[in-house]
């Protein structure tokens, strides 16, 4: 069969951004791993089908150590899609590609730093088609939404099994968030109805994010990486209108009335 006259299509690579979870192990590694296991026990399936980036900048580690760590995480069903903070030459065949352009995570005070991070730090850009090696060439910058207030308004209830992912800013739901549904926002989350699912605010590293709801029955609250499950929440808050925020290293919750 001849393929001589096949019409040629121009190959197009479009930027596409995915929000990745950044895992940053801390020394001693064994303790960190034990903490991770304890955490995973409480939230089984949390890492399934989520892109995860391994940030090794805080961990003194050698070439073999990286491979062992990636394998350890693989056994825990955590698939690493990229590694930050190690020598790119270490990441050969069978290991995830190196990622650059991510900035080390840390507390963010200024709005500018926040914005910079939102745009760069944890937003991983992969060229399309996805099979192309992300490290091969500098990908195009992601298509930016026009500058303006970043918020997402949902006028329908969020149903069980749905995930609303909005790393760009606040999410407002006029209606309820069902048990088994999930809202992930870069900013704050406002629910004018019952919050029965999971609310994950400040996911791009924003400790000033807050969660508000009219009726509190949530399965999990998280702000800026800190989280609380329904089990660890005070029962006096149930069914009440509440707000949640981060104070130091803990999530605080109080009723609104």
């Amino acid at each position: 069969m001849s393929i001589a006259e096949r019409p040629r299509h121009a190959l197009r690579f479009r930027g596409r951004s995915f929000l990745a979870l950044a895992l940053a192990p801390e020394p001693p590694l064994a303790d960190w791993m034990a903490d991770l296991d304890a955490w995973s026990d409480k939230s089984p399936g949390f890492f399934v089908s989520r892109p995860v980036v391994l940030d090794l900048s805080a961990l003194p580690i050698d070439r073999d150590g990286v491979a062992a760590l990636v394998a350890d995480l693989y056994r825990r069903d955590i698939r690493i899609m990229g590694v930050e903070g190690v020598d790119a030459n270490w990441l050969g065949l069978g290991l995830p590609p190196p990622l650059t352009g991510g900035r080390p995570a840390g507390p963010l005070e200024t709005i500018d730093a926040q914005r910079a991070r939102r745009e760069a730090a944890r937003t991983v850009v992969a060229p399309e088609p996805a099979e192309a090696a992300p490290s091969a060439a500098a990908p195009e910058p992601p298509a930016r939404a026009p500058e303006g207030p970043h918020s997402l308004l949902l006028r329908e209830p969020v149903r069980s099994g749905q995930t609303i992912m909005f790393p760009e800013g606040d999410v407002t739901v006029v209606g309820s968030v069902a048990s088994g549904a999930e809202i992930v926002a870069g900013g704050s989350i406002h629910v004018y109805g019952a919050l029965r699912g999971r609310a994950i605010a400040g996911v791009t590293g924003n400790p000033r994010a807050q969660i508000f709801c009219r009726r509190f029955e949530a399965e999990l609250l998280a702000i800026d990486g800190l989280y609380k499950t329904a089990d660890s929440l005070e029962s006096s808050l149930r069914l009440r209108p509440i707000q949640a925020w981060v104070d130091g290293d803990a999530i605080q919750i109080t009723t609104l009335d």
Partner: peptide, 10 residues
Amino acid sequence: VRDSDRIIGM
């Protein structure tokens, strides 16, 4: 009820 909610979403 939760399964029904999922189906309504679909």
